[in-house]
């Protein structure tokens, strides 16, 4: 049982790191926002594993709907692609 939790936690820690790096390397801002949302879901799982279910719930909602929502509205009002040069 403990091992299963640890395995999931390992995967999620890797997921957080990869998601964070991948989000910032994207040229497409919309895709970057979605990747940061994925990172948030992984983080929510880690919060669950760290015995903080309240925070898991909060992080899942805030990180996947609220913050990406605000930033996506910002992208719609500005431009979608990162500029070159």
């Amino acid at each position: 049982m403990i091992d299963a939790v640890m395995t999931v936690a390992y995967i999620m820690v890797i997921g957080v790191a990869v998601g964070a790096v991948a989000a910032l390397l994207q040229k497409d801002l919309l895709r970057a926002v979605f990747l940061s949302g994925a990172e948030s879901i992984a983080l929510a799982f880690i919060f669950q594993a760290l015995l903080a279910p309240d925070l898991g719930l909060t992080q899942a909602i805030v990180g996947t709907v609220l913050l990406p929502g605000i930033i996506i509205l910002g992208i719609f009002k500005t431009r979608r692609k990162d500029e070159d040069d």
């Binding site: 957080v16 964070a20 989000a23 910032l24 801002l29 970057a32 926002v33 940061s36 990172e39 948030s40 983080l43 880690i46 919060f47 760290l50 015995l51 903080a52 925070l55 992080q59 990180g63 913050l67 930033i71 910002g74 992208i75 500005t78 990162d82 500029e83």
Partner: peptide, 24 residues
């Protein structure tokens, strides 16, 4: 890119949150 800076800020604050949760 300003939007990417904002995304980076959300990552930073996620990192701080993770540190605070794992304290407990």
């Amino acid at each position: 890119n300003l939007i990417k800076k904002i995304i980076a800020f959300t990552l930073l604050s996620d990192g701080v949150n993770l540190a605070l949760v794992s304290l407990g």
